[in-house]
Write a protein that binds this DNA or RNA. Structure first.
Length: 561
RNA sequence: GCGCCUGUAGCUCAGUUGGAUAGAGCAGUAGCCUUCUAAGCUAUUGGUCGGGGGUUCGAAUCCUCCCAGGCGCGCCA
């Protein structure tokens, strides 16, 4: 619709140029917005305001000329000039109503598009190290990352979901030592407890399972405990697999799935870390200082140079990060999006600088980053910090158990990633009008209920017939719904483009509100068959769009509540 | 001290990438169920958009300087 209108305006401008009213070289950025106020029509353009100066006319006068030059179009009922010089476009009723046909025909595909054209994008998210259960922050990353993937798929991208974790570093060593200490019956408060050991109760569970010789099947590995407390390497392997499986269960409960788990250790085993170092040295961007090998990242926008190889010969974490992203590039992903906690934002410049230093043709802004801010969990007006399981933070599983999957996902994805989030457990668990998740789901359930009632009454209803009777939809509430429904594809496209899933949540709230208002104001299952058919069609269209939108958020759309 | 992010109603947050009179939910107040699900609806109270300058037809949005909060600033990850 916007495209069609844009072409019309463009033609009008062409004829004004021919008449000499407009200079031919004037910039032409035709912007068309949905209006906020129905009295301003359906669509509006500020084109007369932006071109007024070039035309040497006042904006309202220019707007008049543009309107006069517009070719006739069936989908427009009329145009209007308002305010300082906006042109307001009123769609014909038939045009507004045609969105219902689109929705009923396209069903779950309504709102999707093919801007990605099957190009490959990789999204890396969660990427928690296997040293404990997933906490709320990981949950936010999981929710946001997963929604971004769904949005990309809906806009025609071929998405690979990847989880990266460190299975070999010092943290993992501390984990192994902690489990070993538990195997030997030690407690975190004992004097001999490992200095940087993990203190949570779950370490005890890992130790017990290891001593029993349990077999662990995680998504990407299978390990059996050897039950011998002296074999630290066995303990390490077992603990990693055990906690990976725990995280798998957390993610399963959250309905978040990955295509690929990438192990940091594989970068060493396959020689990719060494190869990366060598390449950076060959490119001449490194130097030795104080026995360490440095990369001159300041040449690529960093505020200080970074150590790659420490004076003790070991690599810093920075290097595998670069090697990993080179690996992603070599796998042929045109786009890579990393969803991370904002506490890691300092790696953004560093990784990009490292990739530029490779001189491998990687674009400057590659990869993209979506950073989410901290989550604070509140209950009864107080901050919740302790978890029974982990002892130090609120786990994702705690939250899902208490709040439920749908509400947890909704609350973690419904806010802009870039702002700090307060997760109110009382609000998320309230089964009342306070809770936006239920509010949206309830709209869907109500719509389903109408369809059930329709059948119970024995009334015939087919889309083919109903679509011929849409001119019955004349109420203001119905027009508002039609406007809202027509907006959905733009919401999806915008959310995907900006990697901002929360805008979908905001939209659904508004759509549900319009639906509830209509539901209360007008009865759908009326005696008049034509009116009834048309209203049921609208009801079904709303139901479909809510289902589609909730699908993008990974929230279920219940048929009854 | 430096860098990134944030600051919008009492609270939690939107604000369509510079547009028209800044919105929603909760909380508060007053109403609506013999009628398709009241997990709903209607009405109403509440704002110097942190503050000062600037850019222009037009600023919550862009620039600059302050103020406040969060997160980073290691030869840790």
């Amino acid at each position: 619709m916007k495209d069609q209108l844009s072409r019309l305006i463009s033609q009008a401008l062409d004829s004004l140029v021919d008449q000499g009213t407009l200079p031919g070289d004037s910039p032409r950025n035709i912007q068309i917005d949905r209006t906020r106020d129905p009295s301003h029509g359906d669509l509006a353009s500020n084109i007369a305001l932006t071109l007024a100066k070039a035309a040497g006319k006042n904006p309202r006068e220019l707007a008049q000329l543009i309107c006069a030059a517009l070719p006739p179009a069936g989908f427009l009922a009329r145009t209007d000039i308002a305010g300082p010089g906006f042109i307001n476009f009123f769609l014909s009723e038939a045009s507004s109503q045609s969105v219902i046909r689109e929705i009923l025909e396209q069903e779950s595909a309504y709102g999707s598009c093919n801007t990605g054209q099957g190009r490959r994008v990789q999204v890396e998210y969660v990427s928690a190290n296997p040293t404990g259960p997933l906490h709320v922050g990981h949950g936010r990353g999981a929710a946001v990352g997963d929604c971004i993937c769904r949005l990309l798929e809906a806009t025609g991208w071929a998405v690979t979901r990847e989880f990266y974790y460190n299975d070999a570093g010092q943290q993992i060593n501390n984990l192994a030592l902690s489990v070993q200490a538990r195997c030997r019956g030690m407690q975190p408060d004992d004097p001999d407890w490992p200095a940087d050991g993990y203190r949570g109760d779950y370490i005890h569970d890992v130790a017990q399972a290891y001593l029993r010789g349990d077999r662990v099947d995680a998504s990407d590995q299978h390990v059996a405990g050897s039950a011998d407390p002296d074999r630290l390497d066995d303990i390490r392997r077992f603990a990693v697999a055990y906690l990976r499986r725990e995280q798998d269960l957390d993610l399963q409960a959250f309905e978040v799935h990955f295509d690929n788990y990438f192990l940091e250790s594989s970068l060493y085993e396959d020689g990719e870390v060494d190869a990366t170092v060598q390449r950076l040295v060959d490119r001449g961007h490194t130097y030795e200082l104080d026995g360490a090998l440095w990369l001159r990242t300041t040449a690529f926008g960093d505020d200080k140079d970074r150590v790659m190889r420490k004076s003790d010969g070991g690599y810093t974490y920075f290097l595998p990060d670069v090697a990993y992203h080179l690996n992603k590039w070599q796998r042929g992903f045109e786009r890579v999006i990393n969803e991370q906690g904002a506490d890691h934002h300092s790696t953004v410049t560093r990784v990009r600088a490292g990739l530029q230093a490779l001189e491998s043709g990687i674009p400057q802004g590659w990869p993209e980053y979506v950073l989410h801010q901290m989550v604070t969990v509140m209950r009864d007006g107080e901050e919740v910090k302790l978890s029974k399981r982990a002892g130090s933070y609120v786990t994702l599983r705690d939250l899902i158990d208490e709040v439920g999957r749908d509400a947890t996902r909704y609350f973690l994805a419904a806010r802009a990633a870039n702002s700090q989030l307060t997760f109110d457990i009382n609000l998320a668990t309230s089964q009342s009008n306070d809770n936006p998740v239920y509010y949206i789901q309830y709209a869907h359930a109500r719509a389903c209920s109408v369809m059930r009632k329709l059948q119970e009454q024995g009334w015939e209803w087919t889309p083919e017939t109903a679509l011929q009777q849409l001119d019955q939809l004349v109420e203001e509430h119905e027009k508002a719904l039609l406007r809202q429904l027509a907006r959905y594809p733009e919401v999806v496209a915008g959310a995907a483009l900006a990697s901002e899933p929360h805008t979908v949540a905001t939209y659904l709230r508004e759509l549900a509100a319009d639906f509830h208002t209509w539901y209360n104001a007008h009865k759908m299952l009326v005696e008049d068959a034509g009116l009834r058919n048309a209203r049921v069609a609208l009801c079904e269209a709303v139901r479909q769009v809510i289902a589609n939108g909730l699908g993008l958020l990974g929230v279920s759309a219940p048929e009854a509540m």
